[in-house]
Amino acid sequence: MTTLLNSTSGPPTREGTADGDRPLTLSVLDLIPVRAGQTTSEALRATIALARVAEAAGAKRYWVAEHHNMAAVASTNPPVLIAMLAAATSTMRVGSGGIMLPNHAPLVVAEQFALLEAAHPGRIDLGIGRAPGSDPVTSYALRHNGPETADANRFDEVVDNVLAMLAPEGVGLQLQGRSYPLRATPQAAGVPAVWLLGSSDYSARLAAAKGLPYVFAHHFSGEGTAQIIDLYRSSFRPSDQLAAPQTFLTVNAVVAETQEEAERLARPQLLAMVALRTGGELKAQLSVEEAERTVLAESHAALAEQMLTRWVVGTPETALAQLTELAGRFGVDEVMVHPVAGSSEHDPADRSPAREATLELLSRAAVRR
């Protein structure tokens, strides 16, 4: 397995471990934040730069989310972003965290990811979720009063349709007494790895029943993680896709040279999450300086403190120790870091120096262990 390495360093003398025996693999989740005064083009260039830093550092995979109509998030179309990021890198896996299946027809998803897999064989992950990834009005516009995949009761069936359509042999639709062949791409040589994602027990049960890998949204929910993972593992049924349960942990992280600086860099994202949870206005992400000047109401400050306890915010050594402890606690050997460090008013618009530093500082800490 790959351990996160510094881009300018050789292999570490000792890998970080989940429980002292298993190597700790680090991956990256990216929502492609857009900060005040930054264009979408600049945010995308910053993400491409971050992906290259992640790959040079040895990240196993790099996933982008699907969110819509949010001023602070440019990650609206995972297949387009995956094509860009996979073309800008060469070794790490690139995927969706995830495709919000209620927004899409199964054949469209299968076609998109079959093509991505054909273009970048062995490097594509298709993570699937059942949340809308948007507000109700935007969801309606996305689906144009459809597709039928929006019916939560049919999610199980829709997942099966995607899996079947991704298969190289395709599926046969029975029409007027004959079989009509349907393939996502004419001559597939392989299929992307399909993961189910969730923040409740529904997707855990479904992934276990279908023998698929599963990821719980610990970075977003942070509650009930152990119970959900245990449910997935204990209910897992081996399949053609997977012989044993496979999961990893997702964690919001900010790493800086000092604890004080890490907490300062975490504040813009923390304020955004407080606004999301309390019905506040969702704006482009504040700069670190603006966030410092923002005063929270006492009740909101308590919520921010409570959320921060589930994040990894600290120096390289303390952050790596926390990630290792979390991996051991939940019995995983892969942690997907969501680097949420904010940007200064003076940072270049097409880079995210503090997000890049989170990955690089973790690399150096791993080398020193």
Rank of each mutant, 00 (worst) to 15 (best):
residue 105 A to V: 12
residue 100 M to V: 08
residue 87 A to E: 02
residue 60 K to V: 15
residue 95 G to E: 10
residue 76 T to A: 13
residue 85 L to M: 01
residue 51 A to N: 03
residue 86 A to T: 01
residue 98 G to C: 06
residue 103 N to P: 06
residue 77 N to V: 14
residue 103 N to D: 11
residue 78 P to I: 03
residue 57 A to F: 12
residue 67 H to D: 12
residue 47 T to D: 12
residue 74 A to H: 00
residue 95 G to F: 08
residue 105 A to F: 10
residue 92 M to Y: 08
residue 94 V to H: 00
residue 81 L to Q: 02
residue 69 N to E: 12
residue 52 R to T: 08
residue 52 R to Q: 09
residue 86 A to F: 03
residue 61 R to M: 04
residue 54 A to R: 06
residue 57 A to Q: 14
residue 92 M to F: 06
residue 44 L to D: 06
residue 102 P to E: 07
residue 52 R to C: 02
residue 56 A to Y: 09
residue 58 G to F: 03
residue 76 T to D: 11
residue 75 S to H: 05
residue 98 G to Q: 00
residue 92 M to Q: 10
residue 57 A to G: 14
residue 57 A to C: 05
residue 57 A to T: 10
residue 57 A to P: 01
residue 50 L to Y: 07
residue 61 R to I: 06
residue 47 T to Q: 08
residue 63 W to N: 13
residue 78 P to H: 02
residue 51 A to D: 02
residue 67 H to P: 07
residue 60 K to T: 11
residue 67 H to L: 05
residue 44 L to F: 04
residue 73 V to M: 14
residue 56 A to W: 07
residue 64 V to R: 05
residue 88 A to I: 00
residue 94 V to Y: 06
residue 45 R to H: 11
residue 78 P to S: 03
residue 83 A to Y: 08
residue 105 A to S: 14
residue 87 A to Q: 07
residue 54 A to E: 00
